[in-house]
């Protein structure tokens, strides 16, 4: 599998949209295609977070486990979504479980290498950080709305 086609695949993903070509080349160097079967665990809470994933097709559930409720889905992430940012923030450990809900194709990126690149090239680091921050913002807004539990009998 050539890095050139991976580069094109990355360029088409919304997370990397309009990223400069040299950066895409860098990213492609630490990217690989991965496939998860339905039900397959992608990562588990408290594991070291070395990789992160951009989803091409399929659906991933971000879960946690409560002793009295069993596994609970916090959120599902679908096509063109981004899974995982613990690779960017110390102590680089997973906060949640992730599991493929259906057959899912992703591109896995080596977060550890990316971190080093970001440290070396702050322009690249800033660009990547802005994109991750945008995703984090979206997730935070969604979580806040979720916390409001707006359907709890507000409208009749």
């Amino acid at each position: 599998m050539s890095t050139e086609t991976l580069e094109r695949v990355l360029a088409e993903h919304p997370f990397f949209k309009h990223l400069q070509r040299p950066y895409l080349e860098l990213l492609a160097e630490c990217a690989s295609r991965v496939r998860f079967n339905a039900g397959e665990v992608i990562f588990r809470e408290s594991e070291p977070a070395n990789l992160f994933y951009v989803i091409r097709r399929g659906k991933v559930a971000v879960e946690t486990f409560a002793p009295n409720r069993g596994p609970i889905i916090i959120q599902t992430i679908g096509e063109e979504g981004l899974l995982g940012w613990s690779w960017l923030i110390p102590p680089y450990r997973r906060r949640f479980d992730a599991r493929a809900v259906e057959l899912t194709w992703v591109i896995a990126l080596d977060g550890e290498r990316l971190r080093e690149m970001c440290e070396k090239d702050h322009d690249f680091g800033y660009e990547l950080m802005k994109r991750v921050a945008d995703i984090m913002d979206q997730r935070l807004q969604a979580t806040r709305l979720q916390l409001l539990d707006v359907y709890d009998g507000v409208r009749s």
Binding site: I72, I73, Q75, T76, Q146
Partner: peptide, 22 residues
């Protein structure tokens, strides 16, 4: 989409606004 679901659910989980970009 539903706001929360047990792990057996195969549909979307998340607030309704997360679907709009799609």
């Amino acid at each position: 989409t539903v706001d929360t679901a047990a792990a057996s659910y195969r549909g979307n989980v998340g607030v309704v606004t997360t679907l709009i970009p799609r």
